[in-house]
Design a protein around this nucleic acid. Sequence first.
DNA 1: ATTGCATATGCGCTAAAGCGCATATGCGCA
DNA 2: TGCGCATATGCGCTTTAGCGCATATGCAAT
Lengths: 97, 97
Amino acid sequence: MDIPRILVALAEPTRLAAMQIIWDGGEHCVCELMDRLNTSQSRMSRHMKALRDAGLVLDRRDAQWVRYRRNPDLPRSVECIIDAVIVAAAANQKVAA
Amino acid sequence: MDIPRILVALAEPTRLAAMQIIWDGGEHCVCELMDRLNTSQSRMSRHMKALRDAGLVLDRRDAQWVRYRRNPDLPRSVECIIDAVIVAAAANQKVAA
DNA sequence: ATTGCATATGCGCTAAAGCGCATATGCGCA
DNA sequence: TGCGCATATGCGCTTTAGCGCATATGCAAT
């Protein structure tokens, strides 16, 4: 559990947005994320790799797709960080809107 | 409230350690932090500037010293992030010890 | 005014992050 | 086997972060 590494992973806006999508519990392929976050394929793929390397998400091959999902085995302390970050980011988006 | 900027600020180990010291509520000069965190003067000063620029701490001139303290006006959502990060970092240090 | 301690900052350097582009790989289907 | 979609990655580039060193600034005391 490398806290700085986790924070770095969450500190990039596109990665944070991806976490917001994934954290609810579903599985999401790269192409879906890349469409919803309006970014390129290679960029999205690399960002997902960063989240995976930080231990925040898991991935699974499903035919031609790779499905990413939240890592269910994170320590509670790390889940608390992510919850707090997502809440704060969501609150911020409301203010901005 | 720029969440990514806050996360970047917290993602550096020395800055995170400084936040752990400051978050309790006291005032701490750069020389104290630099001694306790075993780092150089310029490095510590710059890291404190980063925390200040992120809005996490405030500073105050007191004679030859500059006292840093936690920013009491942070939104609750941001305080939650910092609390969670500090708890997780502390838990980690126990495991490592 | 000078000295000394505390802090900030300009400068140059190195390392790392992030990106686009092109290409490779994995998989299903015809 | 060959094609097409989804994903990953090598490469080169640009930007940014972080550092040490030296120096500037602020303040107090002599």
